[in-house]
Write a protein that binds this DNA or RNA. Structure first.
Lengths: 189, 189
DNA sequence: GGAAAGTTTCAAAATTTTTTGAAAGCAATG
DNA sequence: CATTGCTTTCAAAAAATTTTGAAACTTTCC
């Protein structure tokens, strides 16, 4: 095996370093986003290499166990920001990250609305119903309390419903998405 | 101590139940938002009661330790969604939650930009510089790799810079904020 | 249909995060 | 200025989350 004579301060090494640094940086964000460090690192690796990698390559590069790699990859598939690929003459499954940054974040927004915002709205509706309909036989003080409580919850529900609607509109897979929104908003102000 | 004769299916009890349910629901979201369950619960309690409470009241109602209550309250102050209050003739400190839902989320967005997005942008710039300027003495293959890598990072930086700018504009404490943006966006499309 | 290659599962172990509570620190009051 | 009431700190304990790795499962190929 002969190494290709690399004439200059090897650029591949620089890329590799940059990739590693990116994986680490992306991994640090994981906590703040409510996912595990490894899952973020696996995504970072697939994104930053731009290649389809198989489980063994991911394990090797990130030094993680097979189980962890498998679970992380599966979770990323569920988020819709990584997809499967197959290579001719290779029985292994390969995984590649969505490369379009805006499409990637549309998928993330969509998924977070579905997982976090919408269930919360449902719960808030239930909670709102606890103090809901009839308001009779209360003292003046009680009534005022109740009204304030209900107003607070109503405001909150309104907020999340608005967020959900906006999110839906701009994160839908079809939509031109956030990009359009962003440019639009940037002009106004 | 005589209890006030409460003539009807006590509304206070319903409110109390609703408050507890809200605290629990809000607490569940904590994980997804990268904060601790207790911190979210303390915020939920202050928000949903709408009152200024002192540390002991918070401890008592949520059944948490003094240290935990103190740390959670302090963190909420740092997020800018809870403020201190004082009561005449009482040496204790009281804490009250921002009651305007939109103001509350503007503060959260502002803080997350500062804590998460902006440091990430700085890191991404550093990483980008690793493969930065000159591109000479490379094979064709190397050059292509490098260009692709740099393009990927540039796209990502662009994305976060856009998010940051938009966020700044709409989450600024002065700004009419997200509310305006939301209504505007709702009309378009 | 069975051997081989690859993937998923999951209980236990490791790690990280959160919580506790007692001690130290501060500040108001008499 | 010392006592008392309140708040913060932080090391240790508890709890929650993440990771491992070997066994079970699935798929492909001959």
């Amino acid at each position: 095996m002969d190494l290709p004579a690399n004439p200059s301060p090897t650029p591949d090494k620089a890329i590799r370093e940059a990739q590693d640094a990116f994986v680490a940086a992306w991994g640090q964000m994981a906590g703040a986003w409510g996912i595990s460090r490894t899952m973020a690192e696996v995504h970072a690796l697939l994104f930053v290499t731009g290649q389809a990698l198989n489980t063994d390559e991911v394990m090797e590069r990130l030094q993680i166990s097979r189980g962890n790699a498998s679970m992380s990859l599966r979770a990323l598939l569920e988020w819709g920001i990584v997809s499967k690929a197959h290579k001719r003459g290779d029985r292994k499954e390969y995984f590649q990250a969505e490369q379009d940054v805006w499409a990637m974040f549309r998928a993330i927004v969509r998924e977070r609305l579905k997982r976090e915002v919408e269930p919360l709205i449902a719960q808030l509706h239930e909670i709102r119903d606890l103090t809901g309909v009839k308001q009779k036989g209360k003292t003046a003080g009680d009534l005022a309390h109740l009204a304030e409580h209900n107003d607070r919850l109503d405001e909150l529900v309104d907020f999340f419903v608005t967020v959900d609607q906006l999110g839906q509109r701009f994160a839908s897979p079809q939509g031109r998405g956030l990009r359009v929104a962003a440019k639009m908003l940037a002009k106004i102000s």
